Amino acid sequence: MATGGRRGAAAAPLLVAVAALLLGAAGHLYPGEVCPGMDIRNNLTRLHELENCSVIEGHLQILLMFKTRPEDFRDLSFPKLIMITDYLLLFRVYGLESLKDLFPNLTVIRGSRLFFNYALVIFEMVHLKELGLYNLMNITRGSVRIEKNNELCYLATIDWSRILDSVEDNYIVLNKDDNEECGDICPGTAKGKTNCPATVINGQFVERCWTHSHCQKVCPTICKSHGCTAEGLCCHSECLGNCSQPDDPTKCVACRNFYLDGRCVETCPPPYYHFQDWRCVNFSFCQDLHHKCKNSRRQGCHQYVIHNNKCIPECPSGYTMNSSNLLCTPCLGPCPKVCHLLEGEKTIDSVTSAQELRGCTVINGSLIINIRGGNNLAAELEANLGLIEEISGYLKIRRSYALVSLSFFRKLRLIRGETLEIGNYSFYALDNQNLRQLWDWSKHNLTITQGKLFFHYNPKLCLSEIHKMEEVSGTKGRQERNDIALKTNGDQASCENELLKFSYIRTSFDKI
């Protein structure tokens, strides 16, 4: 039985969820670079991206490699990797027998973001014989899940209580170790020597080791999670996991709180800001991140802002960003909400898709409305799209047979046209069989910064309504002859009103 693990408890099935942008060198404390989270699957090609990484700022997932063999891993080693800020997950990587050479110096898994409450997941690794993470000293947050690894031993010899604050939620089941077939031998045991430290858990006094050649490092209890030197002297209180010299914040392997210019500090002093819960960055760093993602459509890219001495992905609820200094300031009234469309555009074809934009005031991208039916549609669209004030790209209304009016965009005031449909149009209306009105132009103002209007096959939309939009939106004169079809717009509506004058002759039985 794995020490510190839980057996036999019912657990939810383990679901495996399925960018080499360097964020800056980590400095003297770390020998390499800070790398983003990685999802490495199918083959070993991307694994080489770990070569210079000291910190993975995010998670590391290595999974679904069915053609790899043990010899493929023999020359692979990433000794610079010290810390993973989120979680480490391995799933069905064939041929991998140990992690001792792959990650010989991995010391800390912070667990800032977890995989279903777990910071370390080893699942269905069919050839893994031992973990071998002999320098792993601290899992700051989260638990361990090690399950269905039929060859995995050296679990009962690990004292997880020396690595985690609590072992109650560890789930370590259905491994070879369960069948008591392992016969784990710690260093020196074969020669009758006791080389590794022994600890007591559940009444068992057991030597602690990761492999037959690597003991588990056990520091004096007084050192807590700070770690200790090879001689057993406690590291500085700002260290986490390990250090090369005692009581020196510049000799830590990793930091308990924050890293700044080669030393570990309790908090980031001005003019620095907390970033990702582990390091200090200056304003320029946060500003660069903001600008890199301002026009990016890459998933996970955030326009970072500053709030409460932190550089964070977005302002919290009730705050909006001051564009001059990136500071989050309290909103006066309802907060603006910028919604970034991942692929640059979004099609609204149902109430469900409209709900995804609920509360958005600025759309960074283009909207395509293609709704053919739905219950209580006008009210639903207004509830979900009615706060949109600005669209950076274009607005396209296409084959939306259920629409009679666009009044559900009740606050839309600006279409920038930074991206144009077919390279020309910022407003595009095609084949809307029941569209009769755009907006009530006596109450609604709309500016279209650039781009043209396109109207074709809107049989109940009168040309007068379209011409009014040209005047109000500032697009009059931009359109070419064929942009607004004269014969297919309003051709099934009563669009022309003329005053009919009647004269009559009164007659009676005795007068003409």
Rank of each mutant, 00 (worst) to 15 (best):
N170G: 05
Y319R: 07
T68I: 04
L289H: 13
N42V: 04
V200M: 06
D248P: 01
I222P: 08
T329K: 04
L120V: 04
S161P: 04
L174A: 09
P36F: 14
C223A: 00
Y319W: 07
P31Y: 15
K80S: 11
Y272G: 03
R145E: 01
S324I: 00
I201L: 11
F73I: 11
F258M: 05
E151Y: 06
N175R: 06
L155I: 09
Y319C: 14
N309R: 11
A119D: 00
L152G: 01
C186Q: 01
D184C: 05
V108P: 00
I62V: 07
N117R: 04
F115Y: 04
L63V: 08
L164K: 14
Q204G: 04
Q303H: 12
S324H: 08
K67L: 09
S324L: 13
H28D: 06
Y118V: 15
H226Q: 13
D277V: 06
S324P: 13
C252V: 01
V121K: 00
R256T: 11
L60D: 00
P271A: 13
D169Y: 03
P220C: 07
C209S: 00
T107A: 08
H307Q: 12
F275H: 08
C35T: 00
G300L: 08
T250N: 07
S317R: 15
V206S: 03
V265R: 14
P270Y: 13
R297P: 09
L99C: 06
M38H: 14
S284K: 02
Q216M: 07
Y304H: 07
C215A: 02
T189G: 14
K191Q: 06
P31V: 13
R41W: 04
G111I: 00
P104I: 02
D184G: 13
N42I: 02
N308S: 09
I201E: 02
L240S: 12
G241W: 01
M38P: 00
E314R: 04
H302S: 08
H290S: 06
G37T: 10
C186F: 00
Q276F: 14
Q299W: 10
C196L: 03
I56A: 01
M38L: 06
V281P: 00
P31K: 08
A230S: 09
V281S: 02
W160I: 02
D178I: 10
T211M: 14
M65I: 06
H307G: 13
G37H: 07
L106P: 00
L50C: 02
N138Y: 11
C235K: 02
T211L: 03
P70Q: 05
I158Q: 02
N195F: 11
Q216K: 01
E124F: 03
C268V: 00
H28Y: 12
V218F: 06
L240H: 15
V55A: 08
C53V: 11
I146W: 00
L332R: 15
K100S: 09
L88V: 07
K129W: 07
L50G: 02
S143Y: 03
R69S: 04
P104C: 02
L136C: 03
D101S: 06
S324R: 13
P330W: 13
M125Q: 10
F91R: 02
T140E: 04
C255A: 01
S225H: 09
D39L: 04
D101K: 05
E97F: 15
S284D: 01
D177I: 07
R162W: 11
M125P: 00
S77T: 12
S317H: 14
E33N: 12
N308Q: 13
D178N: 08
H28K: 09
S284N: 07
W278T: 14
L128V: 04
P271G: 09
S98N: 08
H212R: 10
G241Y: 04
L90Y: 02
Y87F: 12
R110M: 12
G132D: 03
Y273V: 04
L289R: 09
E266W: 15
E181T: 02
R263N: 15
